[in-house]
Amino acid sequence: MTITRSLVPIAGLATGLFAGWVVFPTVLYTTVDQPVQFNHAAHTGNGAGMSCQDCHALGQDGRFAGIPGIHQCAECHEEPIGSSENERRFVEEYVQQNREVPWLVYARQPDNAYFPHVVHVHKAKLACETCHGKHGSSSGLRPYEMNRISGYSRDIWGSSIAGIKSQAWDGMKMDDCISCHSVHNNDRACIDCHK
């Protein structure tokens, strides 16, 4: 009898922990598939041999171009290369209609965050992988996980719901910016990274 009695609070505790650690993250995020699949590995390294900068270039004025426009894809993909269904759909629905692909950007920060790629690449000499991980050698695009409340990509928070960072590139919250800036910069100000 006493055992069953003391089981009640333990069951309650377990339920609470389960709800917080397991149910909550699944409910919090919604997953969306990318409009088209993209194989980074096929384009870089041993694939087509391109570098990150070939598509994600820094402009003359130092502004980062972000994801290339459809015209840039069209330079090679005017006609389908290979016979995959994804490729055919990509060429027919986007390239030939000159429509931009509404990519869901894993690393996209909200409007109020300002991140100058050029300063980090040219001045701080950071490699793309430091922040973007092995995205450049991935062979497909995983589903985009969006926080239902804040609208952020899950990549901003990081894969661990507890916010524990396993890799340098896993999670890019303000604290992550600060942890690096506090080491490398004497004069820090909010307006350095906020716009």
Binding site: V8, L13, G16, A19, G20, A162, G163
Partner: peptide
Amino acid sequence: ASAAGILFSP
């Protein structure tokens, strides 16, 4: 108890 459990979750 479950409230306490939730408090110890994210």
